[in-house]
């Protein structure tokens, strides 16, 4: 910016030229940053993200009585398992292994989820029984309305392990 501070007559031909060169380089950088910004914004996913609670993400699992204690029911459309614990609490457990994202099937015989990819195992609460999975299976927001179990698949809850307040219990009539 030294060129700018000088008086008009002092500007020699070369300094004016070098000022314009610098200006061009500066503008070029601005253009480059704009270009990168536009491309990044263009490529970033999630414009049409399904918002939690919006239409289509809530799945009605069914009436409370339908699910016996200590059972796991598969919901293919919602990509989750509905676990009912020994004490009658409900959990909506994601079917996606926390290790690398494989779909974990429930084995009724062994009473656990076993990942076919790297043999991680989870119990009915989604807690890790054997690694390499680093944390418990994710949960989905679950609530009981008029004795009907409902799951909001737009609200995924990450967790380290199982805490008793994660399970949802039906109101005792």
């Amino acid at each position: 910016m030294t060129e700018k501070g000088k008086n008009q007559p002092d500007l020699t031909k070369t300094s004016r030229r070098s000022f314009f060169t610098k200006l061009w380089i500066f503008l070029g950088f601005i253009a480059l940053i704009e270009f990168i910004g536009v491309v990044t914004a263009y490529l970033l996913p999630g414009r049409k993200k399904e918002k939690a609670g919006s239409f289509g993400t809530i799945i009605e699992a069914g009436p409370v009585e339908k699910f016996p204690n200590e059972s796991v029911t598969t919901f293919i459309r919602g990509k989750f398992y509905l676990s009912r614990l020994k004490d009658g609490g409900f959990l909506a457990v994601s079917r996606k292994c926390t290790h690398l994202g494989c779909t974990v099937p429930w084995s009724d015989k062994d009473k656990k989820f076993v990942c076919p990819c790297h043999a991680s195992a989870f119990d009915i609460k989604g807690e890790v029984i054997s690694p390499p999975a680093p944390r418990a299976l994710d949960l989905y927001h679950l609530y009981i309305e008029n004795n009907i179990v409902k799951v909001d698949t737009g609200k995924r809850i990450k967790r380290g392990g199982f805490r008793t307040d994660q399970a949802v219990y039906p109101k005792q009539a």
């Binding site: 494989c102 779909t103 099937p105 990942c115 076919p116 990819c117």
Partner: peptide, 9 residues
């Protein structure tokens, strides 16, 4: 089939 991980994957 996104619902079925083959064993082994």
């Amino acid at each position: 089939n996104p619902g079925l991980s083959p064993n082994p994957t």
